[in-house]
Design a protein around this nucleic acid. Structure first.
Lengths: 335, 335
DNA sequence: TTGTAAGCGTTATCAA
DNA sequence: TTGATAACGCTTACAA
């Protein structure tokens, strides 16, 4: 039960391997009759070209690499689904890598993807990453590269993001309008561009309402639950603690919720809580969390589209796509 | 900036390609001196053997395929992490496929993995699957195959499971001991072995306490939230509805929770609720759900171990590993 | 319209 | 101890 090869077909039809190859790829200068004979036999024998051989010969793999912080984050699981859908439609496979928020892992992932000659790479940055040489290497090799969500501002590449500045501003604005004036921010790592954008949106909206910006209300976290919990506790222990907390991710918001619950602090009566991402879990916790809805699947699809544009035409201009978001008001903010 | 090849090294040292190849793989009959020269130059040039060429030549890829229902299920995201850890340690890559609970997708996944010549496959079955020819094909080709969690009883392959029967029995027993006697079961598809095992555990425990088994209290669901929701509603509308619900997965339990909440039915005062998996979400919903804790990462690691055993020695006996579970009692059951 | 042959970058067999 | 050479299965000049 060996796999069928071109040679097998060629032998059976008494023609050469190259003719078979050309007939199967519908080469213009092959006679109708041989084409039909070859294609019929190929179908009958269920011939599948060996991708390993094709890869070696063509120096490409019909595969794109995807690097995300963690697949267990619902956001990235959905984004991957979007990427995969487009990739499959284009006849590509994807190989998924997790950086686990680690710079070293991310570098190793890139090395491994380049070694296995993926045709393109889609990335959302690890929380730790603050150097970008490994991505420069991707570009040097002429491999198309697209970032999404956690993007890299320093590199000349296509990107898909949401308008983090406005989304954060909108969340803060809603808190202010509901009467909360002292708003703590659970921010992400200051190396992460989108985290800083959200911070800027927060500041902007305070300024717009003539509220003071108190740096002690800004707590930077890595994206772990434990850090989210600890930083919440830190905010609560301030001499003048906040009466609302805006977390730049739902994971952090959930961690905050647990910290509050452990201290019998009521939401939203004692303190309001707003998250970011519309993770499914925000709808089932109690109270349901106000959060920012984005569409990670669409973001993945868009990133894949941008990549395939470059794959088709390497001269395509780089492009920055900004997707829409929506504030979902739920019961973690008092009306 | 072309990648370095064996030929490059051979030319620089004025020796043959085959000598270089042998020197790098530490062949016994190559002189110490040439070995050192070759290895030094390889390091200096940062030589990396081209995996595409190796794959074609060796007819193996140092890659194992992993098929799971969905990576967005926390259980499978963790299991993948476990598999990946072992694979990397063994110098293998993994390629992750999602069946999305679809039989057709699963068949397509298998085809794609076989085509790209993975060296082994680890699978957890799609909810829809009830035929196993595609797996038989894997075995026919001599590709090692291991199942975990949702396993296939008909095939002579190694498997990793928990003791689903006992775990379910323990959950039901706990409900009974807390005074609940009319227990509804949100079961999985009847094609899925582990779902049936949990059903049998449920029946057994009722029998052991001389409680009647009422088939109308068993609602089979696919694994979707919407079905979980609908089946919960169905149970509630029975002439003689249950006063406790045991869901065979946390996803279903969460769906049930939402159905109950939407009807202002209190948990656990009006009805008790028990899940299965210890999904992180069960700890943050309110009330926190009693559930069965298993260790998906360990399950993934074990599956990978079993696979690598077969990969090393194809005569290894098939093996069934049963992992321990633990009942976590939380507030969704009245004390 | 078809066939021959080279080549992708390795490993493995056989001689030397 | 090393070197030619074939082979893995495919695509693609170049020749016929």
């Amino acid at each position: 039960m060996k796999p069928i090869t071109l040679k097998e077909i060629a032998d059976q039809l008494n023609i050469s391997i190259s003719t078979v190859s050309r007939a199967l790829s519908d080469h213009p200068r092959i006679s109708r009759t041989t084409k039909q004979a070859v294609q019929a036999l190929a179908k009958e024998l269920n011939f599948q070209p060996n991708p390993l051989a094709m890869n070696l010969r063509m120096q490409r793999t019909q595969t794109i690499g995807v690097i995300v912080p963690k697949i267990s984050y619902a956001f990235y699981a959905s984004a991957i689904t979007g990427i995969e859908a487009i990739a499959i439609r284009e006849g590509y496979n994807i190989v998924i890598c997790q950086s686990n928020e680690s710079y070293e892992q991310e570098v190793a992932n890139i090395k491994s993807l380049l070694l296995s000659r993926v045709d393109g790479v889609i990335v959302s940055l690890a929380g730790e990453t603050k150097q970008y040489d490994h991505f420069q290497e991707v570009l040097n090799r002429g491999v198309p590269l697209v970032f999404f969500n956690r993007v890299c501002p320093e590199l000349p590449v296509s990107q898909v993001v949401i308008d983090n500045f406005s989304a954060a501003a909108q969340a803060v604005s809603s808190l202010i309008q509901h009467g909360y004036q002292r708003i703590g921010l659970l921010a992400g790592p200051s190396t992460i561009e989108i985290s800083n954008e959200r911070l800027r949106g927060y500041q902007q909206m305070l300024a717009q309402h003539q509220l003071p910006f108190d740096p002690s209300l800004v707590a930077h976290c890595d994206y772990s639950e434990s850090d989210g919990y600890d930083q919440t506790v830190h905010l609560l222990q301030l001499p003048n603690p906040p009466n609302a907390i805006f977390a730049v991710s739902d994971r952090l918001a959930i961690a905050a919720l647990q910290a509050l619950r452990d201290r019998d602090i009521r939401i939203p009566e004692d303190i309001a809580l707003v998250g970011f991402n519309n993770d499914p879990v925000t709808a089932v916790v109690s109270p349901p969390l106000t959060t920012i809805d984005q569409n990670p699947e669409q973001m993945g699809e868009t990133a894949a589209h941008l990549l395939f544009q470059q794959l088709c035409d390497s001269k395509t201009d780089i492009e920055q796509v900004v997707l829409k978001t929506q504030l979902l008001e739920r019961n973690s903010v008092k009306k």
